[in-house]
Design a protein around this nucleic acid. Structure first.
Lengths: 232, 232
DNA sequence: CGCTATGTTGATCCATATCAATAAGTGTGG
DNA sequence: CCACACTTATTGATATGGATCAACATAGCG
């Protein structure tokens, strides 16, 4: 495996502080693979064999229960997923599938746990990462419990616009049916939620969205840093 | 402050592995206080000044947005809350109030961060703790997105029964209006959800609940370890 | 070019919220 | 110990958010 394949990894906050020899040890058992779209990478309930890192493309984390399915989160480069399962040596709580063609690094979980025991810098980096993940989920849960579906969509769009560097018009990034699942509603209802936002200056054409007047949309959406700010 | 006040703390997984001198350092700035019921201990958005540990009683974590409020979790002895905010030196994402008379230990957040930087055992213990917290919230989110309110109640009761050592009859532990908020529904709807469970062998009398036939209730609730198991 | 997926729209149904009235506790001061 | 106020729980009536089902439109795609 050429060293360059792991180039992106070393720069990740998670691997930055660790000793070079430990990084090397981690990488020895690791490999990078490119997957086509719609490939199921992991299945919930399985033991956590590998820590995954999305290098390019994107990955959908989803869950099933009683023949229902819901999308929990989208993982974009460069970040890891199922870190918590790896650390606790516990089964995956979510399944994962590629949304598009994606390069994924796979690092053996037992190796991660060994190095976690040896390298203090690594252990500390994991703390920061996990605390971040935890706070993200709490925000998602507040979003779910405190807002109606149209409010969730409105705030989602406001966040998307920021990710798109504030451009008035931007791409949704994935299919509407998945957006619906992320927001916890049906595709039909999403259509109607978009319509409901027209009066607040939202124009949707397929997967392109334009926010005519951000201030106006904000008056409706009432974004809040304790729910919508990705860093805070 | 008598040493005995912190007795319970030292045995906590979080503080178990750390060097005695570091534990002492943490405790120097810490104090234990007893609060009456319904006292707001922290307010979301505030900077995280203290890591809190519930020694006795119980604490409700809740959030507000746009004049709505929802209960996010209940913290019981002996465990900490707002660890993630402390570590990231970020504002609280949730508010906290005592549900009953409670003894709480308060440990200055900056001190926690200093010792986190010095003590590797402490850093590692925090990882395990955070990974656990993270997985709990993920489970809560799956519960919310994949289940109807009656299904959530049914599974909640099954979990409560386990906490009550499997007794057929047990106490809910708090008011129904709070349970409603935890489940993400209105108190009125909770009344109806309880009625809906009568045919599955659930008898509710005030704050006492009896599960006549666990197997029967399970057939309806379909509990799943990846949502309902507190440890997995 | 025709398939198959996805998205939209309409009609209807269902889960849950809201509003209102009543009942049942619970605590407080006299 | 009672009377009162106050909160909580229940029940009923109604409204609404969102799901479901069906039909159609549209867009990728082999």
């Amino acid at each position: 495996m050429p060293e360059s394949a792991f180039e992106g990894l070393r720069g990740l906050h998670l691997f930055e502080a660790m000793a070079e020899q430990h990084f090397q040890a981690l990488m020895r058992g690791a490999f990078v693979q490119t997957f086509p779209p719609q490939i199921e990478l992991i299945t919930e309930g399985d033991p956590s064999d590998f820590l995954h890192v999305v290098l390019s493309g994107s990955v959908d984390l989803f869950s099933n229960w009683n023949d229902r399915e819901t999308s929990m989160a989208t993982v974009r480069p460069i970040s890891t997923f199922i870190l918590a399962a790896t650390i606790r040596d516990a089964p995956y709580l979510m399944s994962a599938r590629t949304l598009e063609k994606s390069r994924i690094a796979l690092i053996p979980s037992d190796e991660v746990r060994v190095i976690f025991g040896l390298d203090d810098g690594f252990a500390r980096a994991i703390v920061t990462e996990l605390a971040q993940c935890y706070r993200s989920v709490i925000k998602a849960q507040k979003d779910l419990k405190l807002r109606s579906s149209t409010e969730r969509l409105a705030n989602y769009l406001l966040r998307s616009q920021i990710r798109a560097d504030g451009e008035a018009e931007f791409e949704l990034g994935f299919e509407k049916r998945r957006l619906a699942s992320v927001l916890g509603i049906t595709p039909e209802h999403l259509s109607r939620a978009f319509k409901g936002l027209q009066s607040h200056g939202v124009v949707a054409d397929g997967t392109r969205v334009r926010i005519e007047d951000r201030k106006k949309l904000e008056r409706f959406a009432k974004p809040n840093p304790l729910i919508d700010d990705p860093v805070k």
